[in-house]
Nucleic acid binder design. Structure first.
Length: 259
DNA sequence: ATGGTAGTCATACTA
């Protein structure tokens, strides 16, 4: 089962790029972030034509996540538990019924800039809620994948120049500590586990020629529970799509899980 | 210290 995460940065603006990539790589399950539309605005027909079922958790203008799947989806839930007052669309999960079932969680973790400030407080609080959800999935020994745009640079080797990011919400010590607490529960960072060398990035800013200069960062992650990590056979980054016409600033990251 | 780019919605905000 091939599972990919892709921050699409506006699904309506990116529909051609999305369809081209889906046709080329044929993932079984795709987690999208920043669809930037309400549910009714999602370009369903074009994606359904390629054989995908679609579950969305949209929002006007900002945020918004979705799951595309060629396999049946069951028990879809929307919103990260732990704060009834949180109206930002950043979390969706579903059970994918393949040869073996897997719980698939798609997330768009808050950016948190500027830090310090209320946006950074929201980011750290959101990461605490994420940790609680992960604890529950681990407690029930689920085969689960928690994947998406984490807006976390885990370590200095995950960016071109750590000095640039020193005071950024994506790299501040409390951010990295919260991410490490998540891993410490027993989750596996799939790309770190399969491709340990530095300089593997998933995001290049639109500004200042970041892509041609390869000034990237690694912030899109797939975290696996032990039952899922036991099935991990491959992991990769489709970096080439960043060089195409009208690209997202993020690129897809994917894993293969054995049946 | 600033602005460089992009998407959405409306002339600002988020990233």
């Amino acid at each position: 089962m091939k599972i990919a995460t892709f921050n699409i940065n506006g699904v309506r603006a990116r529909i051609v790029a999305l369809l081209d990539w889906l046709r080329e790589t044929r993932p079984d399950v795709v987690l999208l972030q920043e669809i930037k539309t309400v549910d009714d605005g999602f370009p369903r027909l074009e994606v359904e034509d390629l054989g995908y079922a679609i579950e969305t958790h949209g929002q006007k203008g900002f945020n918004g996540v979705a799951i595309l799947s060629r396999l049946p989806l069951e028990d879809v839930t929307r919103g990260l538990p732990g704060d009834e007052s949180d109206e930002q669309a950043r979390w969706i999960e579903a059970t994918v019924v393949g040869e073996t079932a897997a719980r698939i969680c798609g997330l768009y973790l808050p950016n948190g800039n500027p830090a310090p400030g209320p946006k950074y407080d929201y980011k750290l609080a959101w990461m605490e809620r994420l940790r609680h959800r992960a604890e529950a999935l681990l407690a029930e020994e689920s085969c689960a994948v928690l994947a998406g745009d984490y807006n976390v640079i885990p370590a200095p080797e995950d960016c071109w120049d750590p000095r640039i990011w020193a005071k950024d919400a994506l790299f501040l010590p409390p951010t990295r500590a919260a991410y490490q607490r998540l891993l410490n529960l027993g989750l596996t960072d799939a790309l770190r586990a399969t491709d340990a060398h530095a300089g593997v990035y998933t995001f290049w800013d639109y500004q200042a020629g970041a892509w041609p200069k390869n000034h990237g960062i690694r912030i899109d992650h797939l975290l696996l529970t032990p039952a899922a990590a036991d099935r991990l056979t491959a992991c990769g980054v489709d970096a080439h799509v960043r060089g195409r016409e009208k690209p997202s600033d993020h690129v897809p990251v994917w894993i293969e899980l054995a049946a």
